[in-house]
Design a protein around this nucleic acid. Structure first.
Lengths: 194, 194
DNA sequence: GAATGTCTTGAACGGTCAGTCTAGACTTGC
DNA sequence: GCAAGTCTAGACTGACCGTTCAAGACATTC
């Protein structure tokens, strides 16, 4: 058997992620990608097939390493309200640290959903659905612990929380300062406890 | 004096708006624009100067005809809570009628803010700030009418409402169905009245 | 009806786009 | 050390990018 790849595929996907994340799918050219990934065009097409296929792979990795990882950690917390607070605080801290104002790759892609391939649409939709389901579980657990009024509709509240997270992610890309982002978190939490 | 323009500039801007709105700034080519506007490249550059300048003009028109117009109408309503309800209902109805799932041009641009020109950034930021100020006025009026608890922080609530509107606009582009969008509206209103 | 001056037209600009292909470099199995 | 077979390098494809420009069309003014 022959020669194996001499570049780290996973590392290359990671470098591609940063480009797509900051510039968006359309505005990212193959040259941008090969420059960042430090490979040549031939290698990119040999390894990934197409720009769209590479984006799919990037999105999958992003989802696994960010959304899934975060949910797993938050779900392990005992107090569901603390978990929600921690989530908002983490998003705000992330946006403060993000000099490029890249936002969230999933949300960025969600806004442009109709212009993406079906696979990408499916990936984003299911990722956000899982996020919503995660919120439902948290709210129901909080209700069981009597931290949240029993008459709150957990499913509606979960959709609202997802919407707040999405709104925060969008506004963090240049419209709101940190203080305003904190207001979103405060109000989101107040809504379900009051 | 010479010949005057023989195409309707305002109508052409309107046609350009639809293209930018559906496809996004980057994904829209000059050919896409000239096809839709039914003018030639030369005329486009003669009349507008550049793709970015045309986009600026489109955004300004969109803001005037949509955001400003809506705020003016809602602000004339006597009951501020009805105004908020009406706003959410209108957004949901608009998204249901929008087969192309174009969403909101201002929100679409806001998510991509760091990749736009300074003029565009300023335009979007001020438009959303005015939206926020509008929500502050509504909440304060509702408090004066004892429809909303006096201890609610009107400024925070306004930021939260803006975030909900933005979240709704994003999720309406393919992630949420109408019922889920209605949940966002319900919860947003419930938050400030409870 | 001729001069004026902005309009439209359409070709052309250099550059870049996503993607392909060939030639050669290289590791592996024998 | 040789054959097998996948990798990389980078030139190349034709199409399209945003933008410019020269030439001609035309309504207006005198």
């Amino acid at each position: 058997m022959p020669w194996v790849k001499d570049f780290d595929v996973d590392l290359a996907v990671d470098k591609a992620m940063k480009v797509f994340w900051a510039k968006g799918y359309e505005a990212t050219s193959i040259s941008d990608l090969t420059d960042a990934m430090e490979i040549k065009k031939g290698s990119l097409y040999n390894a990934f097939g197409s720009k769209n296929a590479l984006f799919n792979r990037v999105l999958l990795k992003y989802d696994r390493e960010n959304r899934r990882a975060a949910i797993k950690q938050l779900e392990a917390m005992e107090d569901p309200l603390v978990a929600i607070r921690t989530l908002f605080d983490a998003l705000i801290a992330e946006s403060e640290a993000d000099r490029e104002r890249k936002g969230c790759l999933l949300v960025n892609t969600a806004l442009d959903l109709p212009n993406h391939s079906e696979e990408v649409q499916a990936l984003v939709t299911s990722a956000l659905s899982e996020f919503e389901a995660f919120f439902v579980r948290l709210v129901e657990r909080a209700q069981a612990r009597k931290q949240v009024p029993a008459d709150l509709d957990a499913r509606e509240a979960a959709k609202s929380l997802l919407s707040q997270v999405v709104g925060l992610r969008v506004l963090a890309r240049g419209v709101f300062d940190s203080e305003s982002l904190r207001a979103i978190g405060n109000q989101a939490l107040a809504r379900i406890t009051a």
